[in-house]
Computed example of a mutant assay.
Amino acid sequence: MKKVLFLFFCVSTLAFAQNDLNVMSYNVRLASVDDGDNSWEIRKERVARLIEYYEPDFLGMQEVQKVQLDFLLENLPQYRFIGLPREEGIHAEYSCIFYNAEKYKVLEEKTFWLSEIPDEMSKGWDAACHRIVTYGLFQDKKSKQKFWIVNTHLDHVGLKAREESAKILVQLAKELKAKKDIPFILTGDFNAEPNDTVITTLKEDLKEASSVSKTKPYGNSIHTWNAFQFYKIPDKQIDYIFFDKKTSIYVRKFNTINDFYDFKYPSDHLPILATFYLNYKKINNKPINTFYTI
């Protein structure tokens, strides 16, 4: 009897783990600025090792420049990416999506601009910078389950640009769900705090991961902006992970990662990690894996 119970526990745990989807959002801070002791060359290995350790299935990154992209791809060989730079030039930034290519494949991808003319390289409304959205249709190679994964970085200056961008993201969620009714997950640096119109607009149609986690979010707080100030507690939540309300997935746990080295953070933002649980019975309308029947 003990052997049967032990086997049930082990196999059930394995099945539970296989139904987990780990999604991270991380603003890695661009490389083309003089950050002194926090320059990219000093901290780049730490960023790569952090990603390697937490093993996200999908990682929405912001402020990624080509030199950073190349380094991370070289040092994280299991990952590939989708996305285009938001403008021309060697210092152009990506809002790209890294994905574990050993587990997932890309079926569709697109990058567009957050502006009145989204299919052209353009600034929108009162934005200080070009801003983009990258999204992809991904498929799990084993289970065949599909996902919409979306990543963005909203403007840090233009309030109207952020508010209009939020409306576009809500509309995008509706359009993609209408096209293929599968889990929709949005990551990003939204440069907005929880009570701002940007976030309340998104929450009308999407759930925010940290606030609906089945277990209490782990980490010192849900605040993500640290400005490389290690001895000051972060006091702004501007990085988020959202997902559609009408879905069969839920957030099993949420982590604001405050790992550090030499009393320094790897970036001026703290990465966030949501572990989603996938209910395959509801998603695929067929019985859950027979791991559960012993």
Rank of each mutant, 00 (worst) to 15 (best):
residue 79 Y to F: 06
residue 80 R to W: 00
residue 81 F to S: 00
residue 82 I to R: 01
residue 82 I to N: 00
residue 82 I to W: 00
residue 83 G to F: 00
residue 83 G to E: 00
residue 83 G to I: 03
residue 85 P to C: 04
residue 86 R to F: 05
residue 89 G to H: 10
residue 89 G to E: 10
residue 90 I to V: 15
residue 91 H to K: 14
residue 93 E to S: 13
residue 94 Y to H: 11
residue 96 C to N: 14
residue 96 C to S: 15
residue 98 F to G: 13
residue 102 E to K: 15
residue 103 K to G: 10
residue 103 K to V: 10
residue 104 Y to Q: 09
residue 105 K to M: 11
residue 105 K to D: 13
residue 105 K to H: 09
residue 106 V to H: 05
residue 107 L to I: 13
residue 107 L to C: 07
residue 108 E to R: 12
residue 108 E to I: 09
residue 109 E to I: 05
residue 110 K to P: 11
residue 112 F to Y: 10
residue 112 F to S: 05
residue 116 E to W: 00
residue 116 E to L: 08
residue 117 I to P: 01
residue 117 I to T: 15
residue 118 P to E: 05
residue 118 P to I: 03
residue 120 E to Q: 15
residue 123 K to M: 14
residue 127 A to E: 10
residue 127 A to W: 10
residue 129 C to E: 12
residue 131 R to E: 09
residue 133 V to S: 02
residue 133 V to K: 02
residue 135 Y to A: 04
residue 135 Y to K: 03
residue 135 Y to D: 05
residue 136 G to M: 04
residue 136 G to K: 04
residue 136 G to S: 06
residue 136 G to W: 03
residue 139 Q to P: 09
residue 140 D to G: 05
residue 142 K to G: 00
residue 142 K to A: 06
residue 144 K to C: 00
residue 144 K to T: 07
residue 145 Q to H: 02
residue 145 Q to Y: 00
residue 146 K to N: 00
residue 148 W to T: 02
residue 149 I to V: 10
residue 152 T to D: 01
residue 153 H to I: 03
residue 154 L to F: 14
residue 154 L to D: 02
residue 157 V to Q: 08
residue 161 A to H: 03
residue 161 A to T: 05
residue 161 A to S: 12
residue 162 R to I: 05
residue 162 R to N: 04
residue 163 E to C: 09
residue 163 E to K: 10
residue 164 E to S: 08
residue 164 E to H: 07
residue 164 E to V: 05
residue 165 S to W: 01
residue 165 S to E: 01
residue 165 S to T: 02
residue 166 A to S: 12
residue 167 K to T: 08
residue 168 I to F: 01
residue 169 L to E: 04
residue 169 L to C: 08
residue 170 V to N: 14
residue 171 Q to L: 11
residue 171 Q to P: 07
residue 171 Q to T: 12
residue 171 Q to H: 10
residue 172 L to C: 11
residue 172 L to W: 09
residue 174 K to E: 14
residue 176 L to N: 07
residue 177 K to S: 14
residue 177 K to M: 13
residue 178 A to T: 14
residue 178 A to C: 10
residue 179 K to C: 03
residue 179 K to M: 03
residue 181 D to G: 06
residue 181 D to W: 00
residue 181 D to S: 12
residue 183 P to S: 01
residue 185 I to Y: 04
residue 185 I to A: 03
residue 186 L to P: 06
